[in-house]
Design a protein around this nucleic acid. Structure first.
Lengths: 145, 145
DNA sequence: ATAGCTGCAAAACCTTTGCAATCAA
DNA sequence: TTGATTGCAAAGGTTTTGCAGCTAT
């Protein structure tokens, strides 16, 4: 039950919070903006204010339930915090996205951070390349390094 | 002469554009927001509108002269486009951004891509952590890994 | 001369906040 | 009951845009 997840985070199990959690779980492969969550809730006839969504997402972030990302766009995207692989490789030819994880690599990143005088909390890594699928159109835009 | 850089990009060599280029070059180790550029220009008694700065930075971006980045904060940061890849580390406490590069790491990324069946062309990597500056407010939201 | 550029002010966005009403425990 | 939570509306901060005047070529 999600109720206990919320309790564990020190949050009362209110309807808006449960609904927002549901939306995130139902879309766990996507990155949702606050607006996205708002729209998805409206589609289910759940009437939750946008301000509440921002507040709840911030609380979830503090509780470690979700991660807030800033990509190229001018707004934040949220996704459920996951255990497990969370780096991405994107094919410049066919656009497919795969996930991977490499513990050694992550350890190395932590070392690099330490050398720079930081305690690493997190990272984002995306590799861009050309896959070797036979049916990949190979429209890669940049040259290999 | 910077004038020719601008001409090559199809932009008239106006005073605001030259001044903005100068500011970027004089601060090439930093990541500047539009406000930062605005403030730095005011300090030199150069009266350039903020709207112009946004417009010029967007034009520079289109021309490939600068790169726009979105880190944790709610605004964009700009830097001169550089030769060669470089990665970033962001302090979750005070928001400062530093650059680093590690050739071994990049080689390792290439290997990982190859293992996954890709030929790597490019990558983006951002480490998030807590710096050890005495005056860092340490508002980091997530836990160390 | 003229197409392009600038500054200003207003608008458009995304996000946060104050407050009175409501709700979970 | 009581402190936490919500919705609304208003405010905050960043970025874009319309337009009249100015500038580089």
């Amino acid at each position: 039950m999600e109720t206990s997840e919320l309790r564990k985070a020190g949050l009362k199990a209110t309807l808006p919070r449960l609904k927002i959690l549901e939306i995130l779980q139902a879309n766990k492969d996507d990155h949702l903006s606050a607006e996205d969550v708002y729209r998805l809730l409206l589609e289910e006839d759940e009437d939750v204010g946008l301000a509440t969504i921002y507040r709840v997402l911030a609380q979830f972030e503090d509780a470690g339930l979700v991660v807030r990302r800033h990509f190229e766009e001018g707004h934040a995207l949220f996704e459920l915090a996951e255990i497990g692989p969370h780096d991405h490789i994107v094919c410049l030819g066919c656009g497919k996205v795969e996930e991977f994880s490499d513990e050694n690599l992550v350890n190395r990143l932590g070392e690099i951070a330490k050398e720079l005088g930081y305690e690493m909390h997190n990272h984002t890594l995306v590799l861009y390349g050309q896959c070797s699928d036979d049916n990949c159109p190979r429209r890669a835009k940049s040259r290999p390094v």
